[in-house]
């Protein structure tokens, strides 16, 4: 009846609802106690409303993480959708924090919410950025380390979207291997 009402603006729904988590390293507390859910969103517009209003990753304190995971998947190995999975891992030099890190993280987020991995997108659980004094890291987590075709397609797509040159090799590590490692070296299950 009210002809003066503007046409309702429809937000653009995402395929999944996503949850953004924040980790701050407080040494007196357990890892679980240091992880907090910030918020969830399921539209393009709500993603930007969040992204534009939180601290950019490169300005976080050392020891902090952001994690973006599909709603219902916790950002930890123990979640049943992660425990048989693994991660594509990209490590950065200290200098890259100020030149490339935020661009790479945003591109990773856009790959996730845009479901950029075609038929293999369902294998993607989420992504994590670690801000660390010794070197920052971005990791994309997938649900099953044995899904070779999915893992490789996701890795190649990520590498292309981030614009990494061919000579840069990134590795995929199974969480089971990371969790049981004795030293700091974890064997790559795949590389692209």
């Amino acid at each position: 009846q009210d002809m003066s009402m503007p046409t309702r603006y429809m937000k653009h729904p995402l395929q999944s609802r996503w949850a953004l988590w924040f980790y701050k390293n407080v040494k007196s507390k357990t890892w679980h106690a240091n992880v907090r859910l910030i918020t969830k969103f399921d539209t393009v517009e709500d993603f930007w409303a969040l992204y534009n209003n939180i601290q950019i990753a490169s300005k976080l304190m050392s020891g902090c993480d952001y994690s973006l995971f599909r709603d219902g998947i916790e950002p930890m190995w123990e979640d049943y959708r992660n425990k048989c999975g693994g991660r594509w891992l990209i490590t950065f030099s200290k200098q890259q924090r100020h030149t490339e890190l935020d661009r790479f993280w945003l591109e990773t987020l856009l790959c996730l919410i845009g479901e950029s991995f075609g038929d293999y997108s369902d294998d993607v659980c989420g992504a994590v950025i670690n801000i660390r004094a010794k070197g920052d890291k971005i990791a994309l987590w997938t649900t099953h380390a044995e899904n070779r075709d999915a893992v490789l397609h996701i890795g190649r797509t990520l590498k292309e979207r981030l614009g990494l040159p061919a000579k840069i090799v990134i590795g995929y590590q199974a969480h089971a291997d990371t969790a049981t490692k004795s030293g700091s070296i974890v064997n790559n299950k795949f590389v692209v």
Binding site: Y9, K11, H12, P13, L14, Q15, V44, E45, F47, W48, A49, Y51, N52, E107, L110, I113, G114, E115, S116, G118, S121, R161
Partner: peptide, 20 residues
């Protein structure tokens, strides 16, 4: 079908005025 959005589409919404 699956809702897939390419980067240019997503980036186009970064600075859209907030809707009520």
């Amino acid at each position: 079908g699956k809702k897939q959005y390419d980067r240019e589409f997503l980036l186009g919404f970064q600075f859209m005025p907030a809707c009520i």
